[in-house]
């Protein structure tokens, strides 16, 4: 009798906790949807990035870069076009390796996907296809509203140490599973960055954030806005995803 009572109490408690264990599989499916919609595994993908970085007391720093992605092979290239002083700098990603090319020294330097892109609040990992289902587990979930959208609010915990942030809180649209907002937390539980994805661009059955806003929560007033243009699924020559390409475009 006592066991039965305890079981009933436990079930009642579980029912009150947001994000039931029974729903965990559904929420993982939401994560898988987010990953799938932003990953171009069947085609190449390229676009023009405009990165506006703002810091208090400083003029906004505006950069333009061309991005090429071949997600199926885990390859990507970002070539800086503006400003003139940084023109020709580039990043080549092959698998988990990322190299930075400096045309002045004509040398490649190893860098990490967890590093910030240039001197902005965006990380290199923000430009790669997400792997939320693989890298995070759902710790809690709830339903709510963000603006005029019904959303799932998912608290995620890192499943491995390869990710940039130990914890995430995501606001995901219930109707189409598009990510609208993310809070990035450190290991200590402190909010480090808030990311907004206010608009999306549809390319076939894929969706890419047409605009991204990253707000630094440690340094008030620091934020970075990234806008996409000229998105294309046209095939990209194999030679683009090589170090030689970054060297050649600078000649």
């Amino acid at each position: 009798m006592q066991l039965l009572t305890a079981g009933i109490v436990l079930l009642a408690l579980a029912a009150t906790v947001p994000g039931l264990a029974a729903d965990a599989a559904d929420y993982r499916a939401v994560l898988a949807d987010i990953d799938r919609m932003s990953s171009f595994t069947d085609s190449d993908y390229s676009c023009l990035l405009t990165v506006v970085s703002e810091k208090p007391g400083e003029q906004p720093n505006i950069q333009q870069a061309q991005m090429f992605r071949r997600d199926g092979d885990q390859k990507a290239v970002i070539l800086i076009l503006k400003p003139a002083v940084q023109k020709g700098q580039g990043y080549l990603q092959v698998g988990e390796s990322l190299w930075f090319y400096d045309p002045e020294s004509r040398k490649f330097a190893h860098t990490a996907l967890k590093e910030n892109f240039q001197d902005t609040d965006a990380k290199h990992s923000d430009f790669r296809p997400p792997a939320l289902e693989r890298d995070y587990r759902v710790a809690a979930a709830a339903e709510g509203e963000l603006g005029r959208f019904r959303v799932y609010v998912l608290d995620l915990e890192a499943a491995n140490e390869e990710v940039s942030y130990a914890r995430l809180r995501l606001w995901v649209r219930q109707d189409n599973h598009l990510l609208l907002k993310a809070e990035n937390y450190g290991l200590s539980g402190r909010l480090l960055r808030t990311s907004y994805y206010p608009s999306y661009l549809q390319l076939g059955d894929k969706f890419v954030a047409a605009k991204m806003l990253f707000v630094d929560e440690l340094r008030p007033g620091e934020k970075t806005q990234i806008t996409l243009a000229n998105a294309s699924l046209a095939p990209i020559p194999d030679t683009v995803f090589t170090k030689a390409y970054l060297e050649r475009v600078n000649r």
């Binding site: 967890k114 140490e161 990710v163 130990a166 450190g186 200590s188 402190r190 480090l192 440690l218």
Partner: peptide
């Protein structure tokens, strides 16, 4: 003071 750093495994972290 706030301190922003990378953990031993390279993740972003911050503390007071």
């Amino acid at each position: 003071l706030l301190v922003s750093l990378r953990t031993a495994s390279g993740q972003q972290n911050a503390g007071e």
